[in-house]
Design a protein around this nucleic acid. Sequence first.
RNA 1: GUGCCCGUAGCUCAAUGGAUAGAGCAUCAGCCUUCUAAGCUGAGGGUUACUGGUUCGAGUCCAGUCGGGCGCACCA
Length: 553
Amino acid sequence: MLEFFLPVIQRALFSAGVTTDKPIRLEQPSDKKFGDFSTNIALLAAKACKRNPRELAQEIIPYLTFPPDTVAKIEVAGAGFINFYLTPLFIMQSVEQVLLQGDEYGKGNIGQGKTALVEYVSANPTGPLTIGRGRGGVLGDSLANLFETQGYEVTREYYFNDAGRQMQILGESVRLRYLECCGQKTEFPATHYQGEYIREIAEKLYSDYETTLEKNTDLDLFKKSAEEIIFKSIRTTLDRLSIRHDSFFNEHTLYTPDSQGISANQRVIDELRKKEFISEYDGAVWFLTTRLGQEKDKVLIKSSGEPSYRLPDIAYHITKFERDYNMIVNVFGADHIDEYPDVLEALKILGYETDRIKIAINQFVTTTVDGQTLKMSTRKGNADLLDDLIDDVGADATRLFFIMRGKDSHLNFDIELAKKQSKENPVFYLQYAHARICSLLRMAQQETGFNPSARTAECRLLRQLSSPAEVQLGFALLDYPAMITTSLRLLEPQKMVEYLHDLAELFHRFYQECPILKAEPDICKARLYLSLATRQVLRNGFRILGVSAPESM
RNA sequence: GUGCCCGUAGCUCAAUGGAUAGAGCAUCAGCCUUCUAAGCUGAGGGUUACUGGUUCGAGUCCAGUCGGGCGCACCA
C-alpha cells in the first residue's frame, strides 16, 4: 500500500510547496474511524515551515489526487493527521491479487540476489535439548523462513563443538555408568552429567560390548558413542519441530592448520596482535578489551594452551564473512548475552562490516503447570526436556507458544493452556479458522459444484462485496505483505502470530454475519473467494511459523 | 557491586514518538430448527512501578529510584 500512496503524497507536498527532510510514513490508525491509512507528514513538516499543522494539512489535501474509485475520502483530524478512507471496491479488487498469487502472495524481493546465514540452536552434543533451546530453535527457524520470503538465499547453520573439556567429562560420565552396568561400584562426581540418558548410552554399550571395555581407560569410544547417540537424539527432536539445518559447522575445524600450517584461531591472534590488541601475561594470551574501555581484558588462550571459547567464536564469525554472506543472523539465549560484544569488537578491529550482523536474543522460558511455575533446571534433566514438552502438547503448540511472545519477554509456557482444545488456546483458534474454511469449501463443492480456480475471471465477483465484515476481512488480507517485512525488520515472528490471530478473528466474524452457501449464487461465490483468499493467507503465514494447516478438526 | 532484558486491566501479553493505551483469558449479560457454538456480540475492569527531564505530543526517548530475570571464569 505504501507504494500506492507514497508517490501521490510526494507530488502533493511538492505542489503545495512543502519541503521536509522527514520521511513520509503511512500508518494504520488504531481506530477505523480515523481512516484506513493515515500520515502525520503535516505534523512533521509544520515545524520547519513554522506553520499550524492543521492548516498545512488542509492546504496539502487538494493536491492529493488518486485514481477514481480508490480513495473515498481524505480528511484532516486531530492535531493535523491526514486520514485516508479507501473504497470497498478498491479493497475487494485488491484481494484478487491474493488469489492470483497464491503461495507466492506476500513474498518480496528486498533480499533478491542476497545471501543470509542464520545460526541457531548450536547446542553441543552433551545432552538432549532443553526447552530453553527450543525457543531459540523455533525463533531461528521462523526467522530463516521470513528471510526466504524476501528472496534471500538462506543457509541455516548449526555451530557445535565435539572436542574440549565438556566432551571429556561426557565420555567419563558414560564410562562410569558403563562400569556400573558391569557391576562395579563407582563414585559418580557431582560435576558429571547426571541425566538418565547417560545410563541409557552406557546400557547400549554394555549390550553391544558386554564387559570387554572394562579395562578401557581411553575415553574415545565412550565419547564417540555418546556424541553419536546424543546428536541423533537432538536432530530427531528438532525434526519433530520441523527445524532443519543445511550446514553443521564443527568448531574443531578452526583449530586445524590450513595449507600454510596456520589455524583459523591462530590467524585471529596474529591479526589482533598486529593491531596491538594482544598481550601475554599470567601465562595466558589476552584480548586487550581494556583498550576499548572495558573493565577487564578477556582471555583468548588459556595458560593450558587451549583457546577459550571466545577465540574460535571470533574465528567462526570471520568464516561467515569469508563465505560472503550479506546478512548474518545469530540467534541465542539470554545466557550468552555477554558473549557477542567481544566478538563484534574483535571483528570491527579486524575491519569487518559488523553492520551485516544481526543478533536475536531470546529471554528465558518458564513452564507453568496448574498455575505452578517450574523453573527450568539443566541438572535434573526431567521437567525441562524439549522432547517431553512436544510429547505433552504437540509440535504445533510448542512452535507457536515459543514465538507468540516477544523475544525480549520472559516466556511463560502454560502447559495446560497449550493442551486445551478451545478458543483460549491460540493454536486451536488459528487452526480452527483454517479448518472451518476447508470444511466450507468442501461443502460448497458438494452442493454447488464450486471449483475454486484462482485464475478464473470469476474472482472479479469479489467486487460486489461491501459489508463491513467483508471489507474489514479483505483489508486485513492486504496487510499480510507488510506484516512479513515488519516481522523481519524487528526479527520478531511474534508480529506474524498476532496478525494471524486478528485475521482468524475477522474471518470468524465474517462467517457469523454473512451467510455464504445460502446467499444468492453470485454473492455466494464472491464470499467463497473471500474465504479462499483468507485460507491462502493463513496457510502462507502458518508456513512461516512452521505450524500445520489442518483440513479438518 | 556491575552489564543486558523486563515492569502496562485480576492473569498472559500488544501498542514503527502520535489521536480516547488495546487483545485474549477470567467475570457478567446475550446469540445455535441456519455453512463446524472448537464460534460470534456486548459490558465492566488502568495514576502504563515511582520521580524528574527532553517536545507540539512520552507506555515508548534520557537521568535517577524501586522491584523481578539472566549473565559477570584461564566453562561453552
